[in-house]
Amino acid sequence: MVCRAPQQKARTSAMGSGVVELQRNSTNWAKAVGEIVKMERKIFPKHESLASSFAEELKKKNSGLIYVELDGEVVGYVMYSWPSSLFASIAKLAVKENYRRQGHGEALLKAAIQKCRSRKVHRISLHVDPLRTPAMSLYKKLGFQVDALIVGYYSPDRDANRMYLEFDSE
Rank of each mutant, 00 (worst) to 15 (best):
G34D: 01
F87V: 11
F44K: 03
R41G: 05
N62P: 00
S84D: 04
S84H: 02
S85Q: 14
S63C: 11
A30R: 15
N62D: 13
P45R: 11
G72T: 10
I43W: 06
G34C: 06
G72F: 02
K38L: 08
A55K: 13
P83M: 03
K42F: 14
H47M: 07
E57G: 12
S49D: 08
S85Y: 11
A32M: 09
V68A: 06
K59D: 13
E35V: 02
F87K: 14
A55I: 04
E48N: 15
E56T: 02
I43M: 06
V75I: 05
V68S: 04
S84V: 06
D71I: 09
S85H: 12
Y80L: 07
K38R: 15
F54D: 06
Y77F: 07
K42H: 14
G34R: 04
Y80K: 05
E48S: 11
E73G: 04
S81D: 07
S63W: 12
K38G: 09
E69T: 10
K38W: 12
E73P: 04
P83S: 08
F54S: 06
S63M: 10
M39E: 02
A30I: 09
Y67K: 09
F44P: 02
N62R: 14
K38H: 12
A32C: 07
L65M: 07
L50D: 05
